[in-house]
Amino acid sequence: MNPYEFRFEKLPNPVLSPSDGGFDSKNVYNPAVVKRRGKTVMLYRAEAKEEEITGRIGLALSEDGIRFIKHPEPVMEPEYGWESLGVEDPRIVRIGKTYYMTYTGYDGRTARLCIATSKNLLNWRKHGVVFEEFPFLKNGKPNWTKSGAILPEKMKSGPFGGHYIMYFGDSNIWLAYSRDLLHWEYEKEPVLRPRGHLAEPGPAPILTEEGILLIHSEAFYEDGKLVYYTHAALFGREDPRKLIWRTEEPILRPTFDWERYGWVDNVVFAEAMVEHGGRYYLYYGGADRHVGLAVGTIKLGSSQKSSNV
Rank of each mutant, 00 (worst) to 15 (best):
L282N: 06
G262C: 12
R91H: 02
E133W: 10
S171Q: 14
L59T: 08
P201N: 03
Y44I: 10
R125P: 02
G22E: 03
N27D: 10
V33E: 01
P159L: 03
T255M: 09
N13W: 04
A48K: 04
I53G: 04
L137S: 12
K154L: 00
S217I: 14
N143Y: 11
E210I: 06
W245Y: 11
L198E: 08
F160W: 05
I53Y: 03
E271G: 12
G55A: 03
P12Q: 05
A233H: 07
E79H: 04
A294D: 09
P142V: 15
K305Y: 07
R241L: 14
T145D: 04
D107M: 09
S147L: 03
V28Y: 02
S19C: 01
E222N: 10
G301V: 05
A60W: 05
G292I: 10
P205H: 01
P31S: 01
E222A: 09
M155W: 03
G148T: 05
G211M: 08
A111H: 14
D170E: 12
Y284N: 08
G161Y: 05
Y164R: 05
E271T: 15
H71W: 14
R7A: 09
R45E: 06
G262D: 13
I66T: 11
A232L: 06
V291H: 11
L293P: 11
G108V: 11
S147F: 02
H197C: 02
P194K: 09
I57W: 08
D257F: 10
R279T: 05
E77N: 02
G38V: 10
S62I: 13
E153Y: 00
F220M: 13
E51N: 00
E210C: 07
R195P: 01
L113N: 14
S307A: 02
R260T: 12
N2Y: 07
I215W: 07
L293E: 13
I298F: 01
M42G: 10
V267L: 14
W258N: 13
N27K: 03
K39V: 08
K49V: 02
K141L: 15
W184Y: 06
R237P: 09
P72S: 05
G224Y: 11
S178T: 06
Y284S: 04
A46E: 04
L85Y: 06
R112Y: 13
I244W: 00
A60K: 09
G277C: 01
G140Q: 15
L121G: 12
E189Y: 12
Y283V: 05
R94E: 14
I150C: 00
E238R: 12
P201W: 00
P152I: 00
R253N: 11
N172Y: 12
E185H: 12
W184E: 06
L113Y: 14
H127K: 07
K305W: 06
E271K: 15
N172V: 10
G65I: 12
